[in-house]
């Protein structure tokens, strides 16, 4: 195949003159990281609440939590994103919808993608929190209640600290997934990392260099996340339990 390799392309000033192509990639990286991290915060908070609710001894609450999980887990991510970005503003009262649509496009895209990714991932986190809680011996809850703790206190001081430690490894995968899933924001025009790769292809006609560079950046993000999560696991391990010595 006749291909004209040119790695120096990254140092060239872009056609539009606002930055180098490397600068474009770094801007993309910035959006990918900030989108993923803010969505991850939403996912952890909501996922924990919903996961706990799935295990509480109240039919209404656990039913509601189950419905939440099934809703967000069973609709494809891309469809959810289109609903948040294209459909929802049309359903709002016209004044509010128009205000949203006329705001800066970057914020509309970022906001829709953050909410979408956060809720989608929260359903998956909720399932892990639930399985973490369910994997604990029943006696723990009973013992906590017998000690005079209220149910919320049992969750806060007895169940959750152990459950979190148990689900740390699968949570790491979810954390990695959110970075990879953030690439769907491309479809609504957010200029994140994978979008910048396509832009580079369009502007420089050097597809292989662009995609190789972006692949390396994604790998770097994920290696960093894995390293930090491994450190966290070591730090919080309890002797005698999973990962403990």
């Amino acid at each position: 195949m006749a291909y004209n390799w040119n790695w120096e392309v990254f140092l060239q000033p872009s056609v539009t003159g606002d930055d180098t192509y490397l600068g474009w990639l770094l801007t993309g990286l910035k959006w990918t990281v900030s989108l993923s991290l803010s969505a991850w915060v939403i996912a952890l908070v909501l996922g924990t609440i919903v996961g706990v609710l799935r295990t509480v001894p109240n039919r209404w609450l656990s039913g509601l939590a189950t419905a939440y999980v099934e809703l967000f887990r069973n609709i494809p991510l891309l469809v959810q994103l289109f609903i948040w970005y294209f459909v929802l503003p049309e359903l709002l009262p016209p004044a509010l919808g128009d205000a949203f649509k006329q705001s800066h496009p970057l914020w509309q895209q970022f906001f829709s993608a953050m909410v979408c990714l956060g809720l989608f991932t929260s359903a998956r986190v909720a399932e892990q929190v639930r399985s973490g809680i369910n994997s604990l011996p029943r006696g723990q809850k009973a013992a906590g209640l017998a000690m005079g703790f209220t149910l919320p206190q049992v969750y806060r001081h007895v169940l959750m600290p152990m459950a979190y430690r148990i689900i740390l490894p699968p949570l790491t995968s979810e954390f990695l997934n959110i970075f990879k899933n953030s690439a769907v924001a491309t479809t609504i025009g957010l200029i994140e990392l994978s979008r910048q790769a396509q832009q580079l292809v369009d502007y420089t006609a050097q597809p292989y260099e662009a995609f190789i560079a972006v692949t390396v950046l994604y790998v770097l993000i994920n290696v960093t996340v894995m390293f930090l999560m491994r450190r966290l696991e070591e730090k919080v391990r309890v002797p005698g339990f999973i990962g403990g010595k």
Binding site: V15, T16, G17, P105, G189, Q198, D202
Partner: peptide, 25 residues
């Protein structure tokens, strides 16, 4: 996205300071 128009719009923003918000669909 990926069209010459996108390039021209970005250049207009850069050269004429038009402060357009460009959406690339």
């Amino acid at each position: 996205a990926g069209t010459t128009s996108e390039r021209l719009l970005r250049r207009m923003n850069e050269e004429k300071q038009m402060k357009m918000n460009i959406i690339s669909a």
